[in-house]
């Protein structure tokens, strides 16, 4: 089929519209740029430093930022610049992956449970209730010997697996009421399969909840990850994450501010950027938002 060349104005699909509306939101675009910049910094930055994160400079202990050590050094002579970037790598990936996995899982479980109702709903709700009453920390602790030494990505999966239930419940009740709406019934009578109804009609209509959840999850995960690393997996010392750097640095925040400041700033910047992007996405998806009206 040849696309007619004389079509004056091409029809924009939802994805095209969402992209366009997102692009119009300056703050959101700035957020996205910052986020990309953080990734670049985390992965490319270390090549510009003079020390690697795991080498120790015994002649410079607890030195303030200098030419040699851009962000200063730690108590044992670690290069804070290299450590911060190393932590940023881990935390960015963990934060964003966990947010995507857990919110995604919540969306899918809640969306399908709400749409199908009946048996599917009962099974999903049973799993959710079971996971909610199970002491997740205890389980992780019991299982931790098995995780030891394995890739820290398991950690991401675990964090996501224990963090989706509340959101899934919210999504479930939201989709349950959406299911009764005529536009969903119209889709059913047009023969649209359930999978498409959930992804095309139900989830976009609860996009605001999902986006807020994902946004909060990024910051939350980065901070709570340290708590779990005490249990013996995740990011293990001597390896670092933003969380662990902040946890260790806070004690000496006033006396040796560089230990804490840079990791703290990286975290604040990441969380801010993510929330700008989240707000932008939310407005881009919501045709009622003032941002979108200007099209």
């Amino acid at each position: 089929m040849s696309a007619s060349s004389e079509t004056v104005e091409k029809r924009l699909t939802r994805m095209a519209l969402v992209r366009k509306r997102f692009a119009r939101n300056k703050l959101a675009v700035a957020g996205l740029v910052i986020l990309v910049a953080m990734f670049v910094l985390a992965f490319v930055g270390p090549f510009f430093g003079k020390h690697s994160w795991d080498s120790l400079d015994f002649f410079n202990l607890l030195q303030p930022p200098s030419r040699e050590h851009f962000f200063g050094t730690s108590q044992i002579g670690g290069d804070v610049y290299a450590l911060t970037l190393r932590g940023l790598q881990k935390s960015l990936i963990i934060g964003i992956l966990v947010a995507i996995f857990s919110t995604g899982l919540a969306a899918i479980a809640g969306g399908f449970a709400g749409f199908y109702g009946g048996k599917v709903d009962r099974s999903v709700m049973w799993i959710i209730d079971a996971l909610l009453v199970l002491p997740s920390f205890l389980i992780i602790a019991v299982m931790s010997p098995w995780f030891r030494g394995r890739t820290w990505l398991i950690f991401v999966v675990l964090l996501a697996a224990f963090g989706w239930m509340i959101t899934a419940r919210i999504i479930r009740s939201a989709t349950m009421s959406l299911r009764e709406r005529d536009f969903v019934r119209a889709a059913i009578y047009m023969g649209i399969p359930a999978r498409k109804i959930v992804f095309r009609h139900l989830l976009p209509n609860v996009a605001s909840i999902l986006i807020i959840d994902a946004t909060l999850n990024v910051g939350g995960t980065i901070l709570s990850e340290t708590g779990l690393s005490y249990l013996g997996f995740g990011v293990q010392p001597p390896d670092v994450s933003l969380g662990s750097l902040i946890a260790e640095g806070t004690a000496s925040a006033l006396t040796y501010p560089w230990l804490f400041m840079f990791a703290g700033a990286a975290l604040v910047l990441t969380v801010l950027a993510v929330s700008f992007v989240g707000d932008g996405l939310r407005d881009a998806f919501d045709p009622g938002s003032a941002m979108g009206k200007k099209l």
Binding site: T13, R14, M190, P204, P287, G288
Partner: peptide, 17 residues
Amino acid sequence: FASLDPRLPIGDAIAEP
């Protein structure tokens, strides 16, 4: 007001079936 998905541009809605 209820029979069209508020978050789907109408072109997409008509193209869906």
